[in-house]
Amino acid sequence: KKPMSASALFVQDHRPQFLIENPKTSLEDATLQIEELWKTLSEEEKLKYEEKATKDLERYNSQMKR
């Protein structure tokens, strides 16, 4: 599977709780709203997800070399 971006990892982490809190929201709308939240994060908060994305890219690259 392809590597995930930092923002995609953020959405993946936050979507389940968002949908619990907003059960009538469609998956598409939830994703859009969480992506807007991503844009408001500080660089420090984004760094955690950027590090995860880097590790996921390394995983992807090692799988492609096999």
Rank of each mutant, 00 (worst) to 15 (best):
R59G: 07
E45W: 01
L47P: 00
D56H: 08
F10K: 04
R59T: 12
L57Q: 10
L27T: 10
L41F: 01
N61T: 13
L19F: 03
W38V: 02
S5K: 08
L41K: 05
M64S: 12
E45A: 06
P16R: 11
D29G: 12
D29N: 10
E45K: 06
Q33I: 00
L47V: 14
L57G: 09
E58C: 08
M4L: 13
F10W: 06
A8W: 04
L37E: 04
A6S: 07
R59S: 13
T54V: 10
T25D: 06
S26R: 05
A53F: 07
M4H: 13
D56V: 04
A6M: 01
E44S: 12
K48Y: 11
K55Q: 05
T54Y: 04
A6L: 02
A6G: 05
E45S: 07
M4W: 02
R59Q: 15
N61C: 02
K48D: 00
L32P: 04
L32I: 08
Y49L: 00
L41A: 15
E58R: 13
L32D: 05
E45D: 09
W38I: 00
Y60P: 10
E51M: 09
A6Q: 02
E43F: 06
L47R: 11
L32R: 14
L57F: 08
E51S: 08
L57P: 04
K65L: 14
K48M: 10
D56N: 05
S62W: 11
M64P: 10
E51D: 12
M4S: 13
D56M: 06
S42C: 06
K52T: 05
A6I: 00
Q63K: 14
F10R: 01
S5T: 15
E44G: 12
A53V: 06
E51F: 06
R66M: 14
Y60G: 12
S26D: 10
E44R: 09
K52E: 12
T25P: 01
K46W: 00
A8L: 05
L57D: 14
K55R: 11
P3R: 06
S26N: 08
L32Q: 09
K39P: 06
R66Y: 12
A30Q: 03
L37M: 05
E45N: 03
T40N: 11
K52F: 02
E43A: 13
M64W: 08
L57A: 13
Q33V: 05
E45P: 00
E58T: 08
P3D: 13
P16F: 00
K52S: 08
K46H: 04
K65G: 02
L41H: 03
R66F: 15
T40Y: 03
K55G: 09
Y49C: 01
Q33D: 06
E58I: 08
K46S: 01
S5R: 05
D56T: 09
L41I: 07
S5A: 06
F10E: 02
A53N: 04
A53G: 02
L9Y: 08
